[in-house]
Design a protein around this nucleic acid. Structure first.
Lengths: 362, 362
DNA sequence: CTGAAAGCGCTAACAA
DNA sequence: TTGTTAGCGCTTTCAG
């Protein structure tokens, strides 16, 4: 099976390889007649270009990808960074260069960092936008100068970013609600503990949960939506009050990362009742609560995958001219006790010694 | 930051590119002193070879990856194939050639197809082993001659395959059991419908479910394990008998793909009771049953991802000398009504018109 | 409009 | 032991 190349076509058409190239790529400077002849021969011999040769020939400049995501140890953005780095490593042999300009926290000094990145003659920019108002003009400026911008995890919906890679927050809430509806009995009453409803992400998760619980539960109701403002103390206190006030409460959905105070409160004051707790994401401190059943399930947004996918989308576009979908919604995973140790955040840990759950109340 | 190549190293070491090549590849005909000097410079400037150029230059030694998976339209192995093809496309610019030799059905004529592949001077082989007894010697032969073999979806555990990419079947069963335990009330009785317990995969899923249900349910019991031998008629009949005989039954776990007859039986004869059905994998015909709540959840083994990961593992090893883990266990996804349309098998379809589930019994 | 030729970065055969 | 050189198949520039 000897592959046919531009030379073969040129020979058969009695033209030069330059002409073949012009015909094949619809470039200017060739007569319609020759073009058709070349094209006809090319299809008749079943020509397929050798992408290796093309890649070698065409890519003289190295691609530069800027990355601006929050820095963090041991959690969400940390996993995202690892996902980006792992995928970046696979591409460095293709001559792709990654330039990291992290921000210390979501939204903090992002204007400075992104501006710095944009000076680097990027081809693509991966960014977790903290404050959309700040980031949107920068994104628009980048896209205007041909830089493909991929938002990760949170969107800048009014910007001209090429795409976003995230879990749809509304779906996130709906999924939690459907699970909750299936966990609790008919007519059950549940509550939501959120961060700040001013945050789009939290608001949409909350709305999604309410809509989903209405759809999937049988005569159930969402009794309360409590804002805890990401405060440990406030979360704990409000959960305790909730448990004290609503004796019939049979489920709590926590849609922010700040679930540990809720777990503690439930463990201390919810004992004995069939209270179902559904949380968001996963980190090591949650493990004992999942193992002992305090947390029934957690909706996991897979930051590693988000980072990985963002890189892949950008590079498929840059290297292979793949189209970019306007949005890339990941399917969140569901963390249960059984699959806990397959998650990156937990893999490698060994189960807590006293985690054997033999026929406890499920 | 312009990439450094053999020429740069040659210049710095004041030798020719031929010598650099000899040093870099441990070829003969070079003095120890020059070799060390070149190597030192190469590492100090962080030289990484350009695989595209290498591939182009070496020409005939493009990497060849053989693929032997079942052929199928519209379902599991079909998705797996797409996953492999998508990932293969991303690699073709690296000069990797994929040779497909599918089998019509799992295990059918696999000896012939794999043998044919092994004649192709492969570097890696991706295979879904049907009959381990047949495939194991072929795998061993391949590995003995330096071909890295990656099993997908099912393992050939006694062979010397480099790795397997799959969902651990026992975990699969445990996960289904944990969900079931959380869905059904205290003291609930459930049943398992399986294919053939002689099949390792089905047996392990069954065992996993039993163990998991014992662990996670509160005083519940697995009443029956029914083998339906992948027969539509048998599945339907046995489900009907089960529903008639066990009036208190509150859950069924179907651990094979053959779930439609069970769905029909449940819809016809299980009406009115809170019967929880947990199935395996996902295909279009299941959609209405998920939408109308007949199926409470399905444990999805993500064939697309399995194919994709298999390619990645093989190529990371071949191209970047990455180590291969002895096994790669994927985390199964859980299909619910809310996230249904994020799955590849269903994406693009629009929801069934009468699927609006307004406050039905969950 | 068309052809010739110079690379892309690396390998390998052949000289020296 | 080392240097030189001719490609791999394609794109692109520069003459004609």
């Amino acid at each position: 099976v000897t592959r046919v190349g531009v030379h073969d076509i040129a020979r058969r058409a009695k033209v030069s390889i330059g002409t073949v190239d012009r015909a094949l790529h619809g470039r200017a400077g060739i007569s319609q007649a020759t073009r058709e002849k070349v094209l006809r021969i090319a299809t008749s011999v079943g020509y397929t270009p050798n992408p290796t040769a093309r890649a070698l020939s065409v890519r003289r400049s190295t691609l530069r990808v800027g990355v601006c995501i929050p820095e963090e140890i041991h959690f969400f953005y940390d996993q995202m960074r690892v996902g980006i780095e792992d995928e970046a490593r696979r591409c460095e042999s293709l001559g792709v260069e990654f330039i990291y300009r992290p921000v210390p926290n979501l939204g903090e000094s992002e204007k400075r960092q992104i501006t710095a990145l944009l000076r680097e003659k990027l081809h693509a920019l991966l960014v977790v936008p903290g404050n959309p108002k700040v980031v949107t003009p920068l994104i628009n400026k980048a896209e205007a100068s041909g830089v493909r911008v991929v938002c990760i995890s949170t969107d800048a919906p009014l910007s001209r970013r090429s795409t976003v890679v995230c879990v749809n927050p509304e779906l996130n809430g709906r999924l939690a609600a459907e699970l909750m509806a299936k966990f609790v009995p008919v007519g059950a009453e549940v509550a939501i503990i959120t961060g700040m409803l001013a945050t789009e992400d939290h608001r949409k998760k909350t709305e999604g949960f309410q809509a989903g619980f209405f759809t999937h539960s049988a005569r159930g109701a969402v009794l309360a939506v409590l804002e805890a403002h990401e405060s440990e103390e406030e979360s704990y206190r409000k959960t305790c009050e909730l448990l004290a006030g609503e004796k019939r409460l049979s489920g709590i959905y926590v849609n922010t990362v700040n679930c540990l105070p809720v777990c503690r409160a439930v463990q201390e004051h919810g004992r004995g009742r069939q209270l179902r707790l559904i949380t968001t994401d996963l980190f090591q401190e949650m493990v004992p609560f999942i193992e002992n059943g305090t947390i029934s399930a957690s909706v996991y947004q897979d930051p590693y995958r988000q980072g990985q996918d963002a890189v892949r989308i950008a590079l498929d576009h840059l290297l292979e001219k793949a189209a970019i979908a306007p949005a890339n919604y990941l399917n969140p995973a569901i963390v249960l006790c059984s699959n806990l140790y397959l998650f990156r955040e937990v893999a490698g840990l060994s189960p807590t010694p006293n985690s054997t759950r033999t026929r406890r109340s499920a």
